[in-house]
């Protein structure tokens, strides 16, 4: 095991005991904070969380996700967001307040199979998560390369305060939109940059558990610059 701060834990393992806050993927019994998942423990500012190494995507409020329109009713679209819950995008979000199910045709704006970048407005699990595409950088995706990675590896791809993804973007001039649900869109005018960015993402997905990953990715990005 590593230092006290970053440890590999399995469900039921006590991470730390004492005066700490229980955050993501942990629970408390008395003073003990216990992991509920396989992952890496992370203690920061008195809070304890576990970064998962496996598992699917569970929608959370304010998450940015990439989804695919699967169907629509008179009032809303159903969106596959790579989770056990389907996302719901209400028609009024696209057409505005004066939406009328008689005069407006949902398929004219978003057809089945279209990809969207959306933000989760409400994910209280009592009903399907509510999405919105009104906002900066949200909406229909027109171009780019769609890549799917394991949702548990998204935090690693983003890195501490976005360090990893910024490094990739700088080195390749690509624009990467990461959905918390494990789907990402990479667009780049230069095809070499695009290939490089895709390779970097694949490397991270493959070796997410390895330490010093940032250095490895950096090395890879700089190696074949010609």
């Amino acid at each position: 095991m590593n230092s006290e701060k970053n440890r590999h834990v399995i469900p039921g393992e006590v991470i730390v005991s004492g005066n700490y806050r229980s955050e993501q993927n942990t629970f408390m019994i008395g003073e003990k904070i216990i992991s509920s998942i396989i992952g890496l423990s992370d203690i920061r500012d008195g809070g304890v969380r576990v970064i998962p190494l496996t598992g699917g995507y569970i929608p959370k409020d304010d998450d940015l996700v990439i989804g695919k329109i699967t169907s629509h009713s008179a009032m809303s679209w159903q969106v596959n967001i790579n989770s056990c819950y389907d996302g719901m995008l209400p028609a009024s979000d696209v057409f505005g307040r004066d939406f009328s199910s008689h005069s407006d045709d949902l398929a004219s704006k978003l057809a089945n199979g279209d990809l969207i970048v959306a933000r989760i407005v409400n994910a209280d699990m009592t009903r399907d998560p509510l999405l919105t595409i009104s906002g900066r950088e949200l909406g229909k995706i027109d171009s780019g390369e769609l890549i799917q990675i394991s949702p548990s590896k998204v935090p690693r791809l983003i890195g501490k305060r976005g360090s990893m993804i910024q490094m990739i973007e700088h080195a390749t001039n690509a624009n990467v939109t990461i959905g918390q649900n494990g789907l990402l869109v990479i667009s780049c005018e230069d095809s070499n940059g695009l290939i490089k960015a895709i390779n970097a993402v694949e490397l991270i997905e493959e070796q997410a558990h390895v330490a010093n990953l940032t250095d490895k990715v950096n090395e890879m990005l700089e190696s074949k610059s010609d």
Binding site: I10, P11, N25, I34, I37, G55, S152
Partner: peptide, 9 residues
């Protein structure tokens, strides 16, 4: 646990 389903133990 391998499926990543949260468990108490």
């Amino acid at each position: 646990a391998d499926a990543g389903i949260p468990m108490r133990d």
